[in-house]
């Protein structure tokens, strides 16, 4: 039981990070029906920004203060948001009316560009960050097995929940969210009714990128080691999470992320560590076989 609980804690922490990245995939897909394959790289950029922010804060002597963390968080979100906006402006906007394959290829190109950009400017080596947030506490103990929960894990969970709640509120209750939903349903009609569609789409990219930036910051803090290539694997996992939860659905992205995290942790906990990715992807295939639109996704209604 204690062991199970520990693995659940591991899985939920990992799943929260996947979920935050998955939101970016799902929001963009929901609005313009395209898979933004460069999204994983935005997360990687977030991780690098966070690393640089923390190293700067360490030099100034305030990396482990609440203020230092808050500044790093804001800087990372701001910087990745800017990247998200720029990527959409440069690589996707002009292709919006093009066949669906064109923006997809543009996205893959963008991903390669960003990866190589970071490799060339920051170097190919892994970048370590000394632990910034220390400590935690023992949740419960059975025999010699202690269930440990670190402050960082609690922080990741709380921040993830807060961001999730915040953005669900934005989507469902604010004028911006209404405009987003309208654009999602029918972009042309929304434009006719006076919604600045370009702006709504830009905002969507900015929000998704900022969330990916937060995920990048969490990973930098939690694992302490990043490199220019981390966006690829995390991007694939988060994309899987988005599809599993039902692409286009915000709660679905979060649910999918948590599920992937839990499956990975529990499979490595009870079966083979080597085959955890196979387990995660098998579940995806099973879900898609029986529910092609994902767990919380709505099936596409064929408009006649």
């Amino acid at each position: 039981m204690e062991y199970f609980l520990q693995q659940v804690i591991n899985g939920v922490t990992l799943g929260g990070i996947y979920g935050l990245i998955a939101i970016g995939y799902t929001m963009v897909y929901g609005i313009i029906g395209m898979i933004n394959f460069a999204h994983g790289e935005v997360y990687m950029l977030g991780a690098f920004t966070a690393l640089i922010a923390f190293l700067a804060a360490t030099l100034l002597g305030g990396a482990d203060s609440a203020l230092g963390l808050a500044i790093a968080l804001v800087a990372t979100m701001g910087f990745t948001a800017l990247w998200g906006w720029a990527i959409e402006r440069v690589a996707y906007r002009r292709l919006r009316k093009a066949p669906r394959l064109a923006p997809l290829i543009s996205a893959i190109g963008m991903s390669v560009v960003l990866q190589n950009f970071v490799q060339v400017t920051q170097g190919a080596r892994v970048k370590p960050l000394p632990p910034v947030v220390h400590g935690g506490f023992t949740l419960m103990q059975a025999g010699t097995f202690k269930v440990d929960l670190s402050w960082l894990q609690i922080g990741i969970l709380l921040l993830t929940l807060a961001l999730m709640a915040g953005f669900t509120w934005v989507i469902t209750k604010t004028p911006l969210g209404r405009a987003q939903r309208a654009t999602q349903q029918d972009a042309k009609m929304a434009a006719l009714l006076g919604i600045d569609v370009d702006r709504v789409i830009s905002t969507t990219f900015v929000i998704g990128a900022a969330l990916a930036g937060v995920a990048g910051l969490m990973v930098t803090l939690y694992y302490g080691v990043i490199d220019f290539y981390i966006g690829f694997l995390a991007g694939i996992k988060a994309f899987t999470a988005a599809v599993l939860g039902g692409i286009g659905s915000l709660p679905g992205a979060m649910l999918g992320g948590l599920l992937i995290g839990l499956i990975e942790a529990l499979w490595s906990g009870y079966f083979s560590i080597e085959y955890k990715d196979i387990a995660a992807f098998s579940v995806l295939i099973l879900v898609l076989l029986f529910r092609p639109s994902g767990l919380l996704g709505r099936p596409d209604v064929e408009k006649v």
């Binding site: 062991y3 520990q6 693995q7 591991n10 899985g11 922490t13 990992l14 990973v219 694992y223 080691v225 990043i226 290539y229 981390i230 694997l233 990975e264 942790a265 529990l266 490595s268 906990g269 083979s272 560590i273 080597e274 955890k276 990715d277």
Partner: peptide
């Protein structure tokens, strides 16, 4: 006796084991 996947960042499940 286990094998791990190189290049991963998350080994928390392994550590619990």
């Amino acid at each position: 006796r286990e094998s791990i996947a190189a290049g991963e960042k998350d080994y928390s499940a392994l550590v619990s084991r």
